[in-house]
């Protein structure tokens, strides 16, 4: 694509790379690339985990089992430090988020032209290979977490306790309407910030990769390699942040303020 570096085609190049493969119109349309890529990565990651879990041994572990154990113990430690309830879902939820987001973010490290080119071979015009650059994906995750938080609130405090907390914290019963408004803003801010943080980081990162892709091929590595190496940190960090914030939100749901 380097020979098409003229302003007009550069804009087309960027636009092409940032367009989802959409089926349908309006709201009831589907970003096929997001769905397929994330599902495939989910199958691979959790299929491997399942294989490890099936053959897991308390004796001397293999390399793969050790790797899984390292991740799992990291997640377990984080959850143990932040979450003091007894809900069984939190640690597996955190592990799922961390590994899935990590795997999806890692797609960012693929050469930017690879996925669209392969898709082009099959006659598909667009293929945005990093689902976390699609707000549909990040919002789906954060809203699911949000729903789990609401369920956690109901389970841990009961409807009465939940309502009482929403009406009396932080200013006391006399300011109930303000408390409720604050609570609604706070609860809405959580999933929005959670998903936009991940989306923004990955979208910006992908954008930089695309811009680097616009440069002549013989200088791309000067910027591309450092950015990719730096991005290894970014994708891990973003997965970790999403995980740890989820654990904190869940602990807020299960514990009284």
């Amino acid at each position: 694509m380097t020979e098409s570096a003229a302003p007009n085609s550069a804009g087309e190049y960027i636009h092409h790379h940032l367009t989802n493969h959409v089926i349908g119109h309006g709201f009831w349309s589907l970003n096929v690339d997001t769905l397929v890529t994330s599902a495939a990565l989910g199958l691979i990651v959790f299929g491997v985990l399942f294989l490890v879990a099936r053959s897991v041994t308390a004796g001397v572990p293999g390399k793969l089992q050790s790797a899984v154990e390292v991740v799992l113990e990291m997640v377990q430690t984080q959850v143990h430090d932040s979450f003091h309830g007894d809900a069984k879902i939190v640690a597996p939820l955190a592990l799922t988020i961390f590994l899935w987001v990590f795997a999806i973010n890692a797609m960012d490290l693929l050469p930017v032209d690879l996925a669209p080119t392969i898709a082009g071979l099959f006659g598909v015009e667009h293929w945005k290979v990093v689902p976390t650059t699609d707000p549909n994906h990040t919002f789906a995750m954060s809203l699911t977490v949000f729903i789990l938080c609401v369920i956690g609130n109901f389970v841990a405090k009961g409807p009465g306790g939940y309502a009482k907390e929403a009406l009396t914290v932080p200013f006391g019963p006399a300011m109930a309407p303000f408390n409720l408004i604050f609570r609604i803003i706070e609860d809405l801010a959580k999933p929005i910030s959670l998903s936009l943080r991940l989306f923004g980081n990955m979208y910006a990162g992908e954008m930089v990769f695309i811009l680097i892709g616009l440069m002549p091929w013989y200088v791309q590595w000067i910027l591309g390699a450092p950015w990719a190496i730096f991005h290894i940190l970014v994708i891990t960090l973003q997965a970790f942040i999403f995980m740890i914030l989820t654990v904190i939100y869940m602990s807020m749901a299960y514990e009284s303020h």
Binding site: F27, S29, T34, L35, P135, F139, A140
Partner: peptide
Amino acid sequence: INATIIGQAITFAILI
């Protein structure tokens, strides 16, 4: 935002 969000939420729920 389109129906992808629902699909992704389902996928996510299954994975969890």
